[in-house]
């Protein structure tokens, strides 16, 4: 009986593995195309499906030297890391009262935040730009970090407050009875449970800041401050004649986020369980 069940399961897994291979091939195809393109030489007019028989790494050299992808990656890391840290910090402490004490004011703040999550930042780009000029934030990291933080916050507040709702209120009350100050509840009770949801927020906001284009374009105008999307997009501009180099730049822009995902993958799903589906 048990044996039969195992057999069934084994056959099931067999089918699953085949379906998984087909799925993977389908989803990987676009990346295969960009990879094979990045190893071709300029002016190669062969089909996108054909991998070059002798792969050239010349395009990667061009992307690294002419596009300064190396500096760009460091700049993007600075912007992303600091913004994400601030987002986690401000977002988590703000979510605690918003999730716990449903006063009129708090409800208003929460829904305003969630509303902002949906405002296309492009629609307010010029007012923001003028503000930044008067604050002296153009061509500075703090300028772009503040903007990325502000526009990343709503998503983190949304997820954190959803998560805090799932922690039983009784725990807070017990702590209060033990003489704990209400400000101490957050670090003592809530924070220790937050690791998975933090990793979800890190991935979601980190990836969107890493991929941001418009804010970075307007705030970081000096070539030395260029971020990865800016560096890459300069290869994809209208007069684009070096397609393989553009493809190589794209590949290098994608790699770091993939590595980040692989590291945080384990917590990521747990974090999504905690913040998004309960």
């Amino acid at each position: 009986m048990a044996n039969a069940k195992n057999n069934l399961k084994a056959r099931h897994n067999w089918i699953k593995n085949i379906v998984a291979v087909v799925t993977s091939v389908f989803f990987f195809a676009p990346f295969y195309i960009i990879l094979s393109l990045s190893f071709k030489v300029r002016g190669d007019r062969s089909s996108h499906w054909i991998f070059p028989s002798s792969p050239h790494i010349q395009s990667y050299v061009v992307a690294l030297t002419k596009g300064n992808i190396g500096t760009a990656i460091i700049n993007t890391l600075i912007v992303t890391v600091f913004s994400v840290v601030l987002i986690i910090l401000f977002g988590s402490i703000a979510s605690y009262p918003l999730a716990r004490h449903r006063s009129k004011l708090n409800k208003f703040i929460l829904s305003a935040f969630v509303g902002v999550m949906m405002v296309p930042p492009l629609s307010v780009l010029v007012p923001i730009y003028r503000l930044m000029v008067s604050l002296g934030g153009i061509n500075t990291f703090w300028g772009i970090i503040i903007l990325s933080t502000t526009y990343g916050l709503p998503m983190s507040v949304f997820m954190f407050s959803n998560f805090i709702c799932t922690i039983p209120k009784e725990l807070d009350e017990a702590a209060l009875l033990d003489g704990c100050s209400q400000f101490a509840i957050f670090p003592r009770i809530i924070l220790p449970n937050m690791m998975p949801v933090v990793s979800s927020v890190v991935i979601l906001t980190g990836v969107s800041i890493w991929n941001d284009y418009s804010f970075q374009l307007y705030i970081l105008q000096k070539p030395k401050l260029r971020t990865i999307t800016l560096a890459m997009s300069s290869f994809f501009s209208e007069g684009m004649t070096n397609l393989p180099a553009a493809a190589a730049a794209a590949v290098m822009a994608v790699l770091p986020v993939v590595v980040l995902y692989l590291f945080l993958q384990k917590y990521f799903i747990k974090g999504t369980v905690d913040s998004a589906v309960k």
Binding site: I93, A94, Y96, P97
Partner: peptide, 10 residues
């Protein structure tokens, strides 16, 4: 109500 102060930076 004092906790709302935590939302200040945001």
């Amino acid at each position: 109500r004092a906790l709302t102060l935590l939302t200040l930076p945001a």
